Simulated assay, not measured.
Amino acid sequence: MSRSAIIFHGTGGRPDVAWYPWLDGRLTDRGYRVERPSYPRINVDPIAEFLPTVLAAHDFDAETVLIGHSGGAALLLALTEHLETPVAQTILVAGYATKVNESEEPVLQDSYDWERIRANAGDLYFINSVVDPYGCDANQGRLMFDRLGGTQIVRDDGHFGDWNQQYDTFELVDRLIP
């Protein structure tokens, strides 16, 4: 086994924007095999239809680090619930577990097996802002923390990158990954 990391972009995002390429380079320099898949249908297709594609496309093991941003973080809840083997670490940036605004959220499941997620997610980190323009805020981080434990980190950095928020590096996430 070798250390690997998978960085999941958010709704309407791409793997070549924000801090994802920068983090890829940092982890690659430390010996990680990094994937930044493109999932344009994330939070478009219902999670029950979308999740099998994601599970089949990647290898997950005890050396895997999962990083998700926004819709990609919400995806990680369903993903870790359905893994066959636990991963080393899961980092949810601007993540959420319930509907956060008026938009449909097909990436969310109706319910979660929190015990199974906790058992599979490894070291869990929730990074949310006090205020997030989409509602992926510290309250959502607290909701997940209360059910899963781990570490909740609250910042005041908006959505940690968006079409109108340049966020080319993310030192905090880099420091969290051994």
Rank of each mutant, 00 (worst) to 15 (best):
P21V: 03
G122K: 02
F126G: 00
L143E: 00
Y134R: 11
D123W: 06
A57C: 02
T85W: 02
D174C: 11
L108H: 02
L76H: 03
F170Y: 14
R175A: 15
V130P: 01
P46K: 11
A18C: 12
L79T: 06
D24Y: 12
V54R: 09
F50P: 02
R175D: 14
G12I: 11
E115Q: 15
R36Y: 00
T28E: 14
G141F: 06
D113L: 04
D29P: 05
W19H: 05
G161W: 12
D29A: 15
G141A: 07
C136L: 01
R147M: 06
L108V: 06
V130Q: 12
S4D: 09
S4V: 07
I7T: 05
L51E: 01
L23V: 06
N101H: 06
Y20F: 15
V34L: 08
T28Y: 10
A57W: 11
T11M: 13
E171T: 15
Y167R: 10
N120L: 02
V54W: 07
V173G: 00
Y39A: 08
A57D: 15
V65D: 08
S2K: 15
S103Y: 13
Y96E: 01
A121N: 04
E84C: 09
F8P: 04
Y39F: 13
G95Y: 04
V34C: 05
I127A: 03
F160T: 07
R118N: 03
D61K: 09
V173W: 08
V107Y: 05
P178F: 04
V44K: 14
P106W: 08
A138W: 05
R3Y: 15
L83Q: 09
Y125I: 08
G68P: 11
E102L: 14
T169C: 13
R26S: 04
I127H: 07
F8L: 10
G141E: 00
V130S: 09
T85F: 04
I42F: 07
R175N: 12
Q165W: 12
D162P: 00
L108K: 02
N164P: 10
G95P: 05
G71W: 01
G150T: 02
P37C: 04
N139T: 11
S38N: 14
R14V: 14
E104N: 13
Y39V: 03
Y20T: 02
L92H: 08
L148A: 01
K99E: 12
R26A: 13
V107F: 03
F145R: 04
S103K: 14
F160Y: 13
F170S: 06
P40D: 11
D168G: 12
V100N: 00
F145S: 06
L27W: 07
P46H: 10
P133G: 01
Y125G: 01
L92T: 03
D137I: 03
A56F: 03
P133T: 03
L143N: 02
